[in-house]
Design a protein around this nucleic acid. Structure first.
Lengths: 202, 202
DNA sequence: AAGGTAACATGCATGCATGTACGTATGTGA
DNA sequence: TCACATACGTACATGCATGCATGTTACCTT
C-alpha cells in the first residue's frame, strides 16, 4: 500500500521498490479478479502509484502479467519445488510437495496460477503459453517421480504417469484453492488428496 | 450451429429452439472463455443468430449467464446428483458422485461451473451469488453424507465434515477439469481422489 | 548548484463490447 | 386476407480500459 522508505533513495532502489510494489499489487489483483477483470489503474493505486509508473516499468498489461507469473514461479520453486525435489524417496517427495503447496497458498498471492490457468487454458495467448510451459515442466517432474515410485513398488500401478501427474496437480490445486489457507486442515487434506490420486493407503 | 426444422414451426417451438441453441452456445463460450471474455456477438453467431435474438430472449449478458448456470445445475442434478443421492450407503454414494461427475464433464459444457466459480469467488456479483448458492447446497449434501459415513464407521475421522466436503468438491473439480474427459482414466482417478480426501483405503 | 536523466503523473485518442431503439420478417387469430 | 404480435436483424450511442504523448518531480553528475 505505502512505499516504506521515501527518504533519499538511489534511483535503482527507487525503481526496484516501485517494481516490487506493483508486482505484488498485480499478483493480488490477478488472484482476485483474473486477467480480463484486472484494471491497471487499480493495480497502480493499490501500490501507491498511478498508471504512469506502471507503464514506465512494464510494457503493458500483458508484460505485467508475464512478470507476475515468472515471479510466482520463482518463489514457488524456491519454497516448494526445490525442497521437495531434494527428497530422495518419491512418495515422501510427492506428499511433501502437497503439504508445501498448501502452506505456500496460505498467502493471498497464490491463486494467481490457478486463475490464469483456467482463464487461458486452450487459448492462444502469451500468458497462457507461459503458464502452460510452467505447468508442463511441473507435470513432467511429478510424472518422473510417479514412474520412479511405481518401479520402486512404493506406488501401485495405475493410469500413465503423465495422466496421473495431471490429476495430481489438478486435485492439489483444487483442494488448496477451495480451502484458501484454512490451516492446518489445508495441508492435511492436500496430502490425503494426493495420496488418493496416487493410490496410496491413508 | 444450424437450426434443424425451419418448416412451419409454431412461435413457442421457434422460441424454445432459439433459446436452447443460444444457451448451449453460451455454455460452450463460458467454459472456454469465462464470463469477462464472453462476447455476445460470438455466442449469437455460434448459435446461428445475431445479438438481436439474444437480447430478445435474455435481458443481457448477466441474465444469460444466470440462465446457463441454472441450466447446468438442473442437468447436473438430474444426471449426477439425484442418482447419487438415491444410493443408501454414504461411501458408495460419494464415490458414485465422483465417477458420475467425471462422466458428466466429458461434454465441453462442463467447465462452466468451475470457470465461473474461480472468476466470481469472493466478489459481489449476481452470477457469483448464484454459483455460491449452488455450491453451498452441494457442499451441505456432501457434508451430510460424510458425517453419516463417519458415524457409520465407514469413513475414518478427520477435519470437520464441512471442510472435508469443500475439499472433496475442490479436488473433484480440479481433477476432472484438468483431465478434460480422458476416458476412462477420468472416472478412475476422480474416484481415487475423493477416496483419498475421505481417508479411505484404495 | 545547475544541467541532465530517470521516475512518475496527467490528459487525450482509440478500440471494443454492451445496451437500446428502430426496422424487417415470420407466425397467429378474425 | 388483413391486422396484430412476436421473433429476429441492424445501426447508433455510451462507457470503459488500454496505450501513448506530453508534462512534472526526484535524483545524479560535475
Amino acid at each position: 500500500m505505502t512505499t516504506a522508505g521515501k527518504a533519499r533513495r538511489t534511483q535503482a532502489e527507487r525503481r526496484a521498490q516501485s517494481r516490487e510494489a506493483l508486482l505484488e499489487a498485480a499478483a493480488r489483483g490477478l488472484s482476485r479478479n483474473g486477467y480480463a477483470n484486472l484494471v491497471l489503474a487499480q493495480v497502480a493505486a493499490e501500490a501507491g502509484y498511478t498508471r504512469g509508473a506502471l507503464y514506465h516499468q512494464f510494457a503493458g498489461k500483458e508484460a505485467l502479467a508475464l512478470a507476475v507469473v515468472r515471479w510466482v514461479d520463482e518463489t514457488w520453486t524456491a519454497e516448494v519445488g526445490a525442497p521437495a525435489a531434494a527428497i530422495t524417496d518419491p512418495v515422501e517427495a510427492l506428499t511433501a510437495m502437497a503439504r508445501g503447496h498448501a502452506r505456500y497458498c496460505r498467502r493471498d498471492i497464490a491463486n494467481v496460477m490457478n486463475v490464469l490457468w483456467t482463464e487461458f487454458a486452450g487459448r492462444e495467448h502469451p500468458v497462457g503459453s507461459l503458464i502452460t510451459e510452467v505447468v508442463n515442466r511441473l507435470t513432467t517432474q511429478v510424472a518422473e517421480r510417479i514412474a520412479e515410485g511405481r518401479q520402486n513398488g512404493a506406488i501401485p500401478p495405475g493410469p500413465p504417469p503423465a495422466t496421473t501427474a495431471t490429476a495430481y496437480l489438478g486435485a492439489l490445486e483444487g483442494v488448496v484453492s477451495r480451502l484458501a489457507g484454512q490451516a492446518p486442515h489445508d495441508a492435511e487434506l492436500a496430502e490425503a488428496t494426493v495420496r488418493g490420486v496416487l493410490g496410496l493407503h491413508p
